[in-house]
Amino acid sequence: MNELYLIGDVARRTGLSVSAIRFYADEGIVTPAGLTEGGFRQYDVHAIARLELVRTLRDLGAGLDDIRRVLAAETTLQDLAATHLRLVEDRLRQFRARRAVLRTIVRQHTTTEQVSLMHKLVSMSDDDRDRLLTEFWDFVTDGLDVHPGYVERLRSRRPNLPEEPAAEQLEAWIELADLVRDERFRTALRDHLHRIFGTEQGKLMASPEMMARAERHRQLFLEAQAAQQAGVAADSPQARDIAERMAARNAEFAAAMTGEPDAGKSRRALAGFDRDKPAEVRAKMTGLNLIVRYGTLVATINGTPKPDPDKAAAVQEWLAAALRQGPPDGHRS
């Protein structure tokens, strides 16, 4: 027997209001199974199930026409869900962009013109972002007389904003995009690069051979950093071995740059590391600070480790302490 329910019972079962149930009946979406002698609407279990589906679809943002097509089997529930999923994801991206802009406005004094610009920046397509960075590096490296491989290495340092970026990544993109459009920043960085690489020694530093040496040095530093962060004692044979190899690597680098090998000088420089001196140098080197800021923002956007001068200094102190212990037994230089 097909039991029938009055509209009040249907409302309690579906969570819809009586007026909503009447609306869907009037729109021909879910009609009652019949009427009582007094003219009250009655619904069977099939109608109740359809009303529950209608409520779910409405909660998910479906319109009346979409619901009609689903109930009439003109479209599948899966196709409808896929369409609305795309809409929801687009809306989420819009909300994340708005949140990034609003957070930036809250943290700083922002003009009306800047708000408009920030909104455009977070709404950029991948192609738009790529063109912006290409134009920036074209300007910064224009006329830079170094090996093309080094220029390409500079130009490859680009942000890759993920499809679903975190607020921090969007905020970093806003700052970076604003930065690379800033004429003072662009000019200062270009002047720094031309000044550094405008000498014969600078050109040598950007050569493939020196870049390869720099990469080997970076890999050795990462080995030292991993050991230091793992708690390896500075007076251990492992630490002393790494420190001796670093001192030798520094001496080789200096000899390649100056043509005057002085292993003792390189070793003394590493063993006498003073945390305050690099900080003083960084504070005075505007160009270096510009590069570090750019690199920090790119790392934030890409979700990769950010430059951390304090961590780097801690590793240098660990190497210096290890080197002062003397070479380990059986050390190979």
Rank of each mutant, 00 (worst) to 15 (best):
G15V: 07
E260T: 12
R107D: 15
I242L: 13
D26T: 07
P32N: 10
R155K: 04
M205W: 00
L85D: 07
E113H: 07
V315L: 11
A82R: 15
L193M: 05
V146F: 01
D59H: 11
E135T: 15
A226N: 09
I174F: 07
R22I: 10
G149T: 00
R86P: 00
G39H: 06
E37I: 05
G143S: 01
G287A: 11
A251W: 10
A299I: 02
T134I: 06
P208W: 02
S19G: 07
V115F: 04
S156A: 15
G259C: 05
E113G: 04
P309G: 12
A313I: 00
D276G: 09
L77F: 03
R107K: 10
N250F: 08
K284F: 05
A234M: 08
H119F: 08
V140E: 06
N2G: 09
I29Q: 02
G272W: 03
V292M: 14
A73T: 05
A227R: 09
T36W: 07
A256R: 14
H331P: 04
W137P: 01
R213A: 12
G202N: 01
W173K: 07
T83H: 12
D90A: 15
D65R: 12
A279L: 14
A314V: 06
L323G: 12
M210H: 03
H46W: 11
R58D: 00
F185S: 03
K203N: 02
D274S: 12
D138C: 09
M205F: 03
L154V: 00
L133E: 14
F197N: 00
Y150S: 00
R103C: 08
D329V: 13
P32R: 08
V10S: 08
M211D: 01
D191K: 03
R41K: 08
S116L: 12
A97N: 13
L319N: 06
H109C: 03
L85A: 14
Q228R: 12
A234F: 11
R50D: 15
S19F: 03
A97Q: 14
R245V: 09
R186Y: 02
R282E: 03
T111Q: 08
L60F: 03
V151A: 01
R332W: 06
R22A: 12
A269I: 10
G63R: 11
L288E: 09
R93S: 15
D130T: 11
H192A: 07
A177W: 10
P328T: 14
